[in-house]
Simulated assay, not measured.
Amino acid sequence: MDLPFLILVLALVAFGLVMLFSASYAVAMYRRGTPYAYIRPQLLFAAVGLAAMYIASRVDYHIYHKLAWPVL
Score class of each variant (00 low, 15 high):
2 D>E: 15
2 D>G: 11
2 D>F: 14
3 L>I: 09
3 L>T: 03
4 P>S: 02
4 P>Q: 02
4 P>K: 03
5 F>V: 10
6 L>G: 09
6 L>F: 07
7 I>E: 11
9 V>F: 01
9 V>S: 00
9 V>I: 05
11 A>R: 06
11 A>Y: 14
14 A>I: 14
14 A>S: 14
14 A>V: 13
14 A>H: 13
15 F>T: 08
15 F>K: 02
16 G>K: 01
17 L>P: 05
18 V>Q: 11
18 V>S: 10
18 V>M: 14
19 M>T: 09
19 M>K: 05
22 S>M: 00
22 S>F: 00
24 S>Y: 14
24 S>N: 13
25 Y>P: 07
25 Y>K: 01
26 A>K: 01
26 A>G: 00
26 A>C: 05
29 M>C: 04
29 M>R: 05
31 R>E: 15
32 R>W: 08
32 R>G: 02
33 G>D: 10
33 G>W: 10
35 P>F: 10
36 Y>K: 03
36 Y>Q: 04
37 A>D: 05
38 Y>L: 15
38 Y>S: 09
42 Q>T: 07
43 L>I: 12
45 F>G: 01
45 F>D: 14
45 F>W: 15
46 A>P: 03
46 A>N: 00
46 A>R: 01
48 V>P: 10
48 V>W: 04
50 L>H: 10
50 L>Y: 09
51 A>W: 12
52 A>F: 12
52 A>D: 03
53 M>A: 02
53 M>H: 06
54 Y>I: 01
54 Y>S: 10
55 I>G: 09
55 I>Y: 04
55 I>K: 06
55 I>W: 01
56 A>W: 15
57 S>D: 15
57 S>H: 12
58 R>N: 05
58 R>D: 13
60 D>R: 08
61 Y>Q: 02
62 H>D: 15
63 I>F: 14
63 I>W: 15
64 Y>Q: 02
64 Y>I: 07
65 H>V: 15
65 H>N: 14
65 H>A: 15
65 H>R: 15
65 H>S: 14
66 K>R: 09
66 K>A: 10
67 L>P: 11
68 A>F: 14
69 W>E: 04
70 P>M: 04
70 P>D: 09
71 V>Q: 01
72 L>W: 15
